[in-house]
Design a protein around this nucleic acid. Structure first.
Ligand SMILES: [Mn+2]
Ligand SMILES: [Mn+2]
Ligand SMILES: [Zn+2]
Ligand SMILES: [Zn+2]
Lengths: 129, 129
DNA sequence: TTATATATTGCAACTTTGTTGCATTCAGTG
DNA sequence: CACTGAATGCAACAAAGTTGCAATATATAA
């Protein structure tokens, strides 16, 4: 399934980055991932691998309220990213976590076509409150 | 009320930027504001004025799904920013609008302290759909 | 009106984040 | 092993945002 559309190749950097994100309980930024890799690959490669993992629906992007981009594993996403859940961002320890089972309910005017959503709530996490 | 805490001064750039944002039906980015000012002031000054207007609860920041930062007038914000409404972002014409009367309903675990929210829905606006 | 204090600005320099082109390397296949 | 093109590293670039400091302009007092 990973190599369905294009002839993707399994590289050391790819599997390492995927493992980092999947094993993390919180969402990670490009900078955090790069430093955790300890020089395994170039920063441009990290950008390209993240872009690829997003395209393959293995991870998803989270834009934080402070503008920092973070990445987390996808849980229910199959054909398309389905991110109707809330992302919580701690203002103190800066961690970002997916609250996969909390989906806000709202009613849009019918004239709008919805393609993606990003719900971010910021404040203090249980550890910092 | 503008000069309550600090001795703020009323400058040409400040009033011009405030007017631009208040007269706009859609949220504006730093770059958009800068170009609309037509060389009235330096780009650093725009950053500083936007920061100040946010601090004074006159405008609020919107982080778009594509990571672009936009600014819009505050409607109901008094002491603190109260942004429980949805921001819609059109993927085609790139406009961002506050849907002030659409507030998502959701239930957070009690262990989290909520300080701010950012709800962005992207897709096609009525004009582009 | 003029003088004064300091808030605000412009400019240069810098950082961070993200992108692109191209030569080189390496994973997958026969 | 040899071949093909996907993946990588590197340099160069662009956009966005920050900081320090000297110069300027606003509010207020004299
Ligand atoms: Mn998520
Ligand atoms: Mn808004
Ligand atoms: Zn925390
Ligand atoms: Zn549109």
């Amino acid at each position: 399934m990973l190599h369905s559309v294009k002839n993707y190749r399994d590289t050391k950097a790819l599997s390492e980055i995927r493992k980092l994100i999947q094993d993390s309980s919180i969402a990670l930024s490009h900078a955090e991932i790069l430093s955790m890799l300890n020089g395994l690959c170039d920063r441009v490669t990290v950008y390209r691998i993240l872009e690829r993992l997003v395209k393959e629906n293995i991870i998803h992007k989270i834009i934080n309220v402070d503008g920092v981009l973070k990445f987390a594993s996808c849980n229910q996403c199959k054909q398309e990213h389905e991110h109707n859940h809330i992302h919580f961002s701690c203002e103190k320890c800066k961690m970002v976590v997916c609250l996969n089972d909390i989906s806000p309910v709202f009613q849009m005017p019918t004239s709008y076509v919805i393609k993606q959503m990003n719900f971010t709530v910021a404040g203090l996490c249980p550890a910092c409150a």
